[in-house]
Deep mutational scan, measured.
Amino acid sequence: AEKTGIVNVSSSLNVREGASTSSKVIGSLSGNTKVTIVGEEGAFYKIEYKGSHGYVAKEYIKDIKDE
């Protein structure tokens, strides 16, 4: 049951290796980017990222929809 969301930041949002603010940053997404959410862990969504997965803070994702 995948969902999509939109990155809701003015600059960019860090994509992390794990569901923690201390996890390594593996990339970033600019505002209004559409993401595919494959799961959630605590305050983070697990998303599809560059052929693999990454984690982003839930508070910066809006317009969550079921695909």
Score class of each variant (00 low, 15 high):
N8Y: 09
T21A: 15
I37R: 01
A57W: 13
D66Q: 11
N8S: 11
T4C: 04
I37W: 02
N8L: 13
Y60R: 06
V56M: 03
S11A: 11
G42H: 08
G51A: 09
H53F: 12
V56N: 00
S30H: 15
R16Y: 11
V35R: 00
E41F: 15
V25G: 03
S22Y: 12
S23V: 03
G31T: 10
V56W: 00
Y55G: 00
G27S: 02
K46F: 07
A1V: 11
T4M: 09
Y49G: 01
E67A: 15
S12P: 12
G42P: 03
E67S: 14
G42Q: 07
I6S: 05
E59R: 12
G31S: 08
S22H: 13
T33W: 06
T21Y: 14
G42I: 03
T4G: 06
S20N: 09
H53R: 05
S23H: 14
V9T: 12
I26W: 03
S30M: 09
A19R: 03
K46T: 04
E40C: 05
T4F: 15
T33Y: 15
I37A: 01
Y60S: 08
E2K: 15
K65T: 10
I47Y: 00
V38R: 07
N14V: 15
T36I: 13
A19E: 03
F44S: 04
K24E: 07
V7E: 02
V35N: 00
F44M: 06
K62Q: 09
Y55L: 01
S28H: 15
V56E: 00
N14C: 06
S12W: 14
I47A: 00
K62N: 14
V7H: 02
Y55N: 00
K65V: 13
V7I: 13
A1N: 14
G39N: 08
I26L: 15
E2S: 12
L13N: 02
S11Y: 10
K62F: 10
S22I: 11
G27M: 06
S52A: 14
K34P: 14
V38A: 06
G39K: 06
L29T: 02
V25K: 07
E48M: 15
K34D: 04
A43P: 15
N8H: 11
L13Y: 03
E40R: 04
Y55W: 13
K58G: 03
Y45C: 03
E59P: 06
I47T: 01
Y55P: 00
Y55D: 00
I6H: 04
I61T: 02
D66N: 15
G18T: 13
E67H: 13
A57N: 15
E2V: 15
E17F: 08
T4S: 12
S10A: 11
S11K: 08
E41Q: 10
K50T: 06
D66Y: 10
V9L: 10
S28Q: 12
K34V: 10
S12F: 11
A43N: 11
T21R: 08
I64C: 05
G51D: 08
S10P: 12
K50E: 15
A19K: 03
E67M: 07
G18L: 14
K3P: 04
E2P: 12
K24V: 14
A1F: 08
K24W: 06
A57R: 13
S20K: 13
K58T: 05
R16F: 07
K46M: 13
V35L: 04
G51S: 07
S12D: 10
K3F: 11
L29A: 02
N8W: 07
V9C: 06
Y49R: 01
S20R: 09
Y55F: 11
G51T: 10
K65M: 13
